[in-house]
């Protein structure tokens, strides 16, 4: 099983330090870890450091990895583009970055499988630049899945989805982690989604790790006040499940 941890991870854009000494405790395959925090907290930067796209100080340790080239897949926030490519082609492109330069029948089958898993097989022949924001996010997710990663980094993958699709997408991610043993780190703005679907939550604020642990223990009024500057509480809803209620901004 894959285990990811970081040791004093940092990043800098010019003279601005955007990530500082982020040490994540071991996160295990099969878990969903929500990374939350206010705007410019360093969530995307943390993902880019883990995906080795950005240079910087500190270490990212991965244990139990089968193939280091395809171990980590990162889905960025930005899903715009003007390419004249079909959905099938764009997912195939993601696959071909890790599966050699010759096109094999297995590549095509994997693309089919990824699209079917996300129930977007009917979009296969659509031009990617003509899709809605939500559809593009699902295609972005398919581009990650087709690479068969062990660690999946999803940067706000539900931001353009309607409420039904948000819940559907999160449920799929949750099942994916449980069924395949994949570790999923997911940046979220909706704290109730984090509360509902995440095993653990990492709160980032000002480029540092503010708190890390099970969702119920981390999403406290004190933490939310200190990082998000909101007055909020977690209470059981009518069905007895924990629900975050935001009273006001501080």
């Amino acid at each position: 099983m894959v285990v990811l941890s970081t040791d004093r991870l940092g990043a800098r854009f010019g003279s601005r330090q955007v990530l500082r000494d982020v040490t994540l405790p071991p996160c295990h395959g099969g878990e969903v870890v929500a990374v939350i925090g206010p705007n410019a907290a360093g969530k995307s930067t943390l993902f880019r450091r883990i995906a080795a796209i950005l240079p910087g100080p500190g270490d990212c340790r991965l244990e139990g990895v089968h193939d280091s080239d395809r171990a980590v897949a990162y889905m960025p926030q930005d899903q715009t583009g003007t390419a004249v490519l079909t959905v099938f082609e764009s997912v195939l492109l993601a696959r071909k970055q890790v599966s050699g330069w010759r096109l094999a029948a297995a590549d095509l089958m994997e693309v089919d499988r990824a699209l079917t898993a996300l129930e977007i097989g009917d979009l296969a022949n659509e031009i990617i630049s003509e899709l809605s924001g939500g559809q593009r996010q699902l295609v972005g997710l398919a581009q990650c899945l087709v690479r068969e990663p062990q660690v999946l980094l999803l940067d706000e993958p539900t931001s353009a989805l309607d409420m039904h699709r948000q819940l559907e997408a999160m449920r799929r991610v949750r099942n994916l982690a449980q069924d395949t043993g994949m570790l999923v780190l997911i940046a979220l703005h909706d704290l109730n989604l984090a509360l509902k679907f995440a095993d653990k939550v990492a709160i980032l604020s000002g480029g540092t790790l503010h708190d890390f642990g099970p969702a119920g223990e981390v999403l406290t009024p004190e933490n939310l006040a200190a990082t998000f500057r909101i007055r909020a509480r977690v209470e059981p809803c009518s069905q007895g499940k924990p629900h975050l209620i935001v009273d006001d901004a501080i």
């Binding site: 970055q97 330069w101 581009q143």
Partner: peptide, 20 residues
Amino acid sequence: RRRWQLTALRLGEARAASFG
């Protein structure tokens, strides 16, 4: 030889970088 990488560039810099 670099056809898959070059084609991926058309998806945008962020996504191409995310493919490694």
